[in-house]
Amino acid sequence: MDDPQERETSKDMQSPNMISEIATPTLMKGIAEPKSEIETKIDIRRLNFFYGRVCALKDVSLTIPPSKVTAFIGPSGCGKSTLVRTLNRMNDVIPNTSVKGEVCIDGQNIYSPSTDVVELRRRVGMVFQKPTTFPRSIFENIAYGLRINDLAGSKTELADRIESGLKAAALWDEVKDRLKEPAQGLSGGQQQRLCIARALAIEPEIVLMDEPTSALDPIATQRIEELIVELKERYTIVIVTHNMQQASRISDMTAFFWLGELIEFDTTEKMFTKPERRMTEDYITGRFG
């Protein structure tokens, strides 16, 4: 390895014995450097990700602030979904992949051998492009996550957590009288909010959203966007979106990626009015992509 401060993990290296401890890396200088420790929830340091030999993320460094919405934008194949999946190690389940670099949440490297991946995924919830409801009742869709995370407790506690999850996802009023009905009977937008409720019920700190509205109609999209803005008070939200208007509407920070590289990261206002980099300007104004 060129840099002794980098380390590599792979699907075949998940055993703690196979992952070498490394020294704390120095912070990257440049646009992605955090302003202070307090403003950093997720600190990505020189992250490289490989599908086999193909490098999908190249030396990505950026800091994601807490209680904000951070949007990842860029053309297809730029690595934004890959990056978001590295934040709760969802890529671990993809064969023949490897990671180099660090992702620190609250200062702790999630790729360190001591990381409890189940606990990590409780702290870092995820919502996908298409609603991923289970073929069970609305109630059971949320209860499942609570049970596997040992958060179910008593029946009353379970019901309370389900209610607060549904309320946080602005779905409670619509489903409170039909919790035993199949989740798949809900509309697409409601199913997506159910997935958000499922993620929120286990009390995460961070919610990752990978194109959460791309399969929804404009009304359902608007509900989800309003919900995201409400949720940022309590959670750190990272959203991948192809819709630049959506990024400009709901995010506080925007990162633009191109061919696996972070091109620019700044406040959304700056990115959409006067980006520093010509490439960002060209992408945002539709000159390429």
Partner: peptide, 9 residues
């Protein structure tokens, strides 16, 4: 047309 960046300016 929802202009952005230099188009918006």
């Amino acid at each position: 047309k929802q202009p952005a960046a230099s188009d918006l300016r």
